[in-house]
């Protein structure tokens, strides 16, 4: 089995209004040193192991997990017992 961890974030050109709101809350906690907060999404996909798995992960990310107009993604593939 493979575990695929997918991380989705907004493109830098898109204002992250949730990140901005979190940042202002962090500042109100007194942590003024925090200069930027970005918020994204995290997915875990559990796969049977097979060839060309990455091709399918790319397709799933492109066609469902992200909107390419506003988001980018990266992923890591780990061994799973």
């Amino acid at each position: 089995m493979k575990l695929v961890k997918v991380y989705v974030t907004l493109k830098p050109s898109v204002l992250d209004s949730q990140g901005e709101a979190i940042k202002s809350a962090v500042h109100s906690m007194g942590y003024d040193q925090v200069e930027k907060v970005s918020m994204g999404k995290y997915f875990e996909l559990h796969f049977q192991d097979y060839e060309n798995l990455e091709k399918d992960v790319d397709a799933i990310c492109d066609e469902l997990l992200t909107n390419p107009n506003i988001e980018t993604y990266r992923y890591e593939i780990l061994e799973e017992k």
């Binding site: 898109v14 204002l15 209004s17 949730q18 901005e20 709101a21 909107n67 107009n69 506003i70």
Partner: peptide, 8 residues
Amino acid sequence: ALIRNEKG
């Protein structure tokens, strides 16, 4: 795309 309002 439609994204979260600027002011949240």
